[in-house]
Simulated assay, not measured.
Amino acid sequence: MVEFVLLTHAGQPVSIEYQWLNREREHTPLLVFLHEGLGSVSMWRDYPQTLCDAAGCRGLVYSRPGYGRSTPRAPEARWQPDYLHIQSWQVLPALLDALGIEAPCWLFGHSDGGSMALLFAARFAERTAGIITLAPHIFVEEITVAGIAAAREAYLAGGLRQGLARHHADPDSPFWGWNHAWLNPAFRQWNLEADIVGIRCPVLAIQGEGDEYASMAQIDGIQRIVPHTQLLKLADCSHSPHRDQAAAVTEATLALLRSVGFAQL
């Protein structure tokens, strides 16, 4: 069941859409799912439930401000190059506090959410048990800019907007927030390499060999900065490994959890 909690974001009250998975397993570890740049609670489909069932744990899925059924972005608001830092260092901790989550949690992030998982783990080591990051970005590549520019054309043509309208109360809110931010010339300097130094928790970084938004330099770069990072590079896989290669992602995630003594496995 989807619920809502009220937070303060950018000085304004915002309603956050969230959903508990296996909430009755209150003494099990928690996986928090961080969605992609155009994602939401519903866009994860059934993968979070499938993974939590396989791991025997609880899950928390939520839509960031501007996404899903959470409070939309104001039409005049322009997200700046630090928007993922704000989501990772301000909004996510506030959400965990509002929901009474005190114990360290596991973060499972995709794309923008994968970058958020890294940022959160670096800043809040005491609140992070480990992270699984799928198709994350730690710097901007030409392939990324080209892919986002192509998404803009698809949205203006109407097909992409129609699809997003099934998952967002106001599809213009997430799309233009994300698209304008990444295509802003100032975003070319965006880089997380200095921000993720010192991550101590277990890290699994996953990327498809056919990723249309990034090269393997992204997860190779994570391993260079955080040497204990485990990498999984998937053939026949695009920007969404949990959709294209769900079984492989699940097995790699469970293997990581087993390796650190995850009690349920």
Rank of each mutant, 00 (worst) to 15 (best):
C105N: 05
L234D: 04
Q230K: 14
V32I: 13
Q19C: 09
L51S: 02
Y67G: 04
W178T: 12
I196P: 03
H167E: 14
I196G: 07
I199V: 13
M1Q: 12
A74N: 09
T71L: 01
R25H: 13
E76R: 12
L164E: 06
L265F: 08
Q90I: 12
D53V: 12
G130Y: 01
G113I: 03
G113F: 06
T253A: 11
E209G: 13
H35S: 07
A246C: 05
L30M: 03
A248T: 01
I206M: 07
R23K: 15
A205D: 03
E3Q: 14
R243M: 08
L160K: 02
L254S: 01
L99S: 08
A55V: 08
G130R: 04
G59K: 10
P93T: 05
I225C: 03
R73P: 07
L7M: 08
Y18T: 03
T229F: 08
Y47F: 15
H137N: 09
Y67N: 02
L21A: 08
E212G: 14
G11P: 01
E102S: 14
G177R: 01
A151H: 05
F139P: 02
Q218D: 03
S42V: 14
F108S: 04
H9D: 14
L134T: 10
E102Q: 15
A263H: 09
G198F: 07
P75Q: 11
D82Y: 10
G158F: 11
H110I: 00
I222N: 02
W89C: 04
H137L: 11
Q90A: 13
Y83I: 12
R25S: 13
Q12A: 15
A157I: 03
L51D: 03
A94W: 00
P136I: 10
N191M: 06
L118T: 01
Q218C: 08
A154V: 06
Y213R: 02
Y155G: 02
Q80I: 02
V5M: 02
D112Y: 02
A94Y: 03
D195A: 14
Q189T: 14
D236F: 12
G109L: 01
R258T: 03
